Amino acid sequence: MYSDVLTMCWSIKEVNKNLSDREPLMDYTVRYLKNACSRLGEMLIQIDAQSPGEEIGVRDRDGRERRFSLKEIAKMLLDAKKVVEFNLIDNIESWARSKA
């Protein structure tokens, strides 16, 4: 499952990186990113069911480290502002890499 999380994080980062190159497809790309973040959240909930109490440490914009449960992170993935504010994709990727 961790390798699936890593793949999804990579995909989200690649699509986001190339977002400016795809203006004609922007609506599709944004929809893809929303769906991918939603699917990533579902993966985290599945992992939480197998390993309850798991947390991911993230740094906010002020540099403070905070820890959130996988369920909290899954909910945050539905809010684009939270994804950016907590750099969620990179933090999830680092966490999954440490578990894989």
Rank of each mutant, 00 (worst) to 15 (best):
M1Y: 05
Y2M: 11
S3D: 15
S3N: 15
S3G: 12
D4C: 00
L6F: 06
T7K: 14
T7F: 12
C9M: 01
C9F: 01
W10G: 15
I12H: 01
I12N: 09
I12C: 04
I12G: 01
I12A: 06
K13D: 12
E14M: 08
E14N: 10
V15G: 05
N16G: 15
N16S: 14
N16C: 07
K17S: 14
K17V: 10
N18A: 13
N18C: 09
N18P: 00
L19R: 08
L19P: 05
S20H: 13
S20Q: 11
D21Y: 04
D21C: 06
R22M: 08
E23Y: 06
E23I: 15
P24M: 03
L25W: 09
D27I: 09
Y28P: 01
R31V: 15
R31D: 00
Y32H: 03
L33I: 00
L33R: 07
K34Y: 10
A36W: 07
C37V: 02
C37W: 05
S38Y: 14
L40T: 02
L40P: 02
L40C: 02
G41D: 04
G41A: 11
A49E: 15
Q50Y: 00
S51C: 13
S51F: 08
P52A: 00
G53H: 03
G53F: 04
E54A: 12
E54W: 01
E55V: 07
I56F: 03
I56R: 01
I56L: 00
G57A: 11
G57N: 11
V58M: 02
V58A: 09
V58C: 08
R59P: 07
R59G: 09
D60M: 08
D60K: 08
D60R: 01
D60W: 04
D62N: 11
D62S: 14
R64T: 13
E65S: 04
E65Y: 08
E65F: 05
R67F: 09
F68W: 03
S69K: 03
E72T: 12
E72S: 12
E72V: 02
E72M: 05
I73P: 03
L77S: 01
L78N: 01
D79R: 07
K81I: 12
K82E: 12
K82R: 07
K82W: 07
V83W: 02
V84G: 08
V84I: 12
F86D: 07
F86G: 04
F86P: 06
F86W: 01
F86M: 04
L88S: 00
L88N: 04
L88F: 08
I89E: 02
D90W: 00
D90C: 05
N91G: 01
N91R: 09
N91V: 02
N91W: 05
N91C: 02
I92N: 03
W95I: 08
W95K: 04
A96H: 03
A96N: 05
S98G: 14
K99F: 03
A100G: 13
